[in-house]
Amino acid sequence: MSAWFIALLQALLCVALAPLLVGWVRRVKARLQNRRGAPLLQPYADLHKLMIKETRVAHTASPLFRVAPYIVFVAIWLACATVPLIALDLPTAGIADIIVLVGLLALGRFFLALAGMDVGTAFGGMGASREMLISALAEPALLMAVFTLAMTAHSTSLVGVMEHHLTDGFLLRPSYLFAFGALVLVALAECGRIPVDNPSTHLELTMVHEAMLLEYTGRHLALMEWAAWIKLLLYGVLIVNVFLPWGIATVFTPAALALGLIAVVVKLALLGAALALGETLMAKMRLFRVPGFLNLALLLGLLGLLSHVILEVGA
């Protein structure tokens, strides 16, 4: 019973922490660019503002437009809730393994793209078309990276992968390095970060993710934005906890859980700072350069998998 309680707590923690991570990245980015930047808690204020504002919907929108924000939010939240954040071995981990997690993210993206096309303006369709291009190339790369981990651990469950990594100690496997590279590139693409997409652009012709949200207001927009932030958190947790799981709680004592929380917050803060640094140094690339970027990710993923099956299984 206490395990289910901790799982619930962890799921709520994902939702609560996501705006903080975004605020942190924005803050660090602003400082790196010699701006003062918004306060750390600004995303919470933004969400609150959007929630209490009136929600408007275009005349041309169908019922799907109003349902989509809930589905997107819930699918991404559920995906995030199955990732071990502060503790391993939670019962929620058995609901979904890594492939189901990728599937849940795809479910969210499917409805996001449909919602973009619903109102019938050119921008929505453009955003949806580009999003599906990016995801079509990113998803196989993500799965390849994930399969490398899964084949090493002989398990597609995230808990299995992390436990295997914990008991194995810190071994520098070539396959893990490749998988890590692939996962980072995919995360940049899937979360709509520079150099693939710019989360703070509002120039219509360059938008991908924002173009699909163009018609949303009020609580619908709040849910969509929040979902995107949770997705960023999810990828962050995936990267830090899969490759560096140390610190995560393996027993459900308050001390271990507190340590797990502190560990993951520190790791995410470092990762967020690295992301901000990268976004400051790089420029957004043209849309048709993105396939090359993602092919690199796919290649890294495949190399990881091949180096695993050739070098590490036989040895």
């Binding site: 795809a106 993206r109 499917f110 793209a113 449909l114 973009g116 096309m117 619903d118 369709g125 949806a128 078309s129 599906m132 291009l133 995801s135 079509a136 190339l137 990113a138 998803e139 196989p140 799965l143 390849m144």
Partner: peptide
């Protein structure tokens, strides 16, 4: 995996 992602793109197109 590539096929699966492209199928999703195809049917977003159809439905949208």
């Amino acid at each position: 995996a590539l096929t699966g992602a492209l199928v999703a793109a195809t049917f977003v197109k159809v439905y949208g």
